[in-house]
Write a protein that binds this DNA or RNA. Sequence first.
DNA 1: TTGTATGCGTTATCAC
DNA 2: GTGATAACGCATACAA
Lengths: 352, 352
Amino acid sequence: MGKEKVTIYTIAEELNMTPSMVSRAFKPDGKVNEKKRQLILETAERMGFEQNRMASRLSMKPIRIATLIYGRFPGYYDEMVRGVEAASRDLSDYKVTNRLFVMPFGEYSQEDAYRVLDEVEADKYDGLVLHGLYGEDVAQRIDRLTDAGVVVCTLHNDILSCRRLFTSMSDTELTGSMAAQLLSIFLPPNRNRMVLFSGSMKSMVHQTLSFSFIRHAEERGMTLLRHYATEDYPERAAEQVRDAFETYSGIDGIYISSANSAPILRYLEENRLGDRVAVVASDVFQELSAYMRKGIVNATIYQDPYRQGKRAFEGLFYYIADGIKPNSYLMTPPQIVMTSNLSVYERWKNDD
Amino acid sequence: MGKEKVTIYTIAEELNMTPSMVSRAFKPDGKVNEKKRQLILETAERMGFEQNRMASRLSMKPIRIATLIYGRFPGYYDEMVRGVEAASRDLSDYKVTNRLFVMPFGEYSQEDAYRVLDEVEADKYDGLVLHGLYGEDVAQRIDRLTDAGVVVCTLHNDILSCRRLFTSMSDTELTGSMAAQLLSIFLPPNRNRMVLFSGSMKSMVHQTLSFSFIRHAEERGMTLLRHYATEDYPERAAEQVRDAFETYSGIDGIYISSANSAPILRYLEENRLGDRVAVVASDVFQELSAYMRKGIVNATIYQDPYRQGKRAFEGLFYYIADGIKPNSYLMTPPQIVMTSNLSVYERWKNDD
DNA sequence: TTGTATGCGTTATCAC
DNA sequence: GTGATAACGCATACAA
């Protein structure tokens, strides 16, 4: 079994060619006689050659990626940032670097964010991970970046009709279905009237999520009393939950499909509705943890922002470095969290 | 911000030394004047030097790791193997190779497995991932391997009182607690009598798992009628489930903490107990999937054997390559699976 | 199109 | 201890 390591030298020797010849044969645009290329590729295959991407990248110029996070909920986008940074660290030996711009929604204006895009374009970065920017303007900017040679991927949200390479997001269709099943489990026997609090209907993510939930909830025989779009504004959510309980007498369950759950849960606590109403929430952050432990929230659906961020950066790198085109959507499966496994997801306590 | 890449050359130049000097300063046993070493380390820190492990590994000799899987349930150990292979692939650029020995329990004897250990020792592998071997003999063999310079980690199960470096396994304490909560949720109202079917009590894994479950179940007010240890034998499980329902009249719930669930579920189906008895099972494999879809199983706890395998190999590599000592236990958190998210875990359908 | 020479960042070897 | 020099495996500018 004494199989020697097979390199481009081994192959070159076997074929009486030079190593550079072999090297070039693997680059799609390398200048090589097509016949020889075929020959090289075949014998490489036969000899069990495996490119050492390490040595390869070592002799190539560094890859520069920028990450712009225009985030709403710190507990959420912090995790995405951690994921991006983890990927960047894991791949740093391949000479990729990440330039990170974290701009919380309240502290920075949209103009500030656009200025970063300018910089990314001017500095000719190789790739961009983009989160939290929406709308037609952004679509155009992304196309401009793409034309300038910057590969763009969006994180957590997609931006339609533009030439971003892919989107790394949570599987919203799946999330809706899981939420429906969870809520149906926690609903009191023979009771099935519930309310949905979602994010903004201008966002694709929340659209598909809401749609999926409603569909699956109906399949399970639940009745949707009302769908409130909180638009990610806490005050809005506070008003709406009050409205809900004033308008409808028998609310048995609530699904909060965005991270904007605190005002709603506070209302439930203050009005001692905790064990009368089944609640399924989204994500895991400090405030929510507390409500879970108090028994206000029965379960929550963790969207794994860490993994979303990680996969975004990785996808970008593998495309830029190796030309491996990822699927248009990298869907990260969400996970079910209840009190028994809550500690696993309280990342601010762990240090892994 | 035009920070040049800082390499050992940059540092050497700064200090009027040679690159070799700098390189040696980072190796604990490198021959360097202690004062100079300090100086080098400090300026490296100051200049923001980051070792390129890629270039480093490139000039070092390959690392050889062997993986021995003496597995019981194909659906389970196949996933572990996939995880090990994924890690091996991801790290292959660092010149690590994996020699894989998969020996199904029925087809191979313990002697066959021991022979592999001999080979690993004789061939002076750098590391070994070991799964499915138990007992005092193995402990001694592991110590011998360790003395011979082979770093050993165990996968899925620990082996006590031996000098294995670490164990990669699922978090059994957590699993027990999750199982208890899940079962309590699915139990019919005001009913709480349940039975536990576990693996062998000779195995640490199943001991702590059972113990954790029983403790948490009691905390939640459930009554354990009986604890059967199926010893991983299907026939045994079949007998025991019959015995259980003949002996106890009001069984409300069942937790099956091992992968040996098929005979039990078949019994439930044949006797139309599906919607009278709440069932929480373990892992995800084809047969179980079917029972979930039929409504016999309410939920299952996925132990993520893929990740367990991946982390085992990675841990070994990082220790051998960089001397980074992992925790004694790498605990992989289990995940909750119900019909709505079942498809995510049906790996035999997916090809990621 | 093909070959040569050089570089990528680090370690190992072997003189000094 | 210290300093040259040759690897490691591959890509590429440049010459042929």
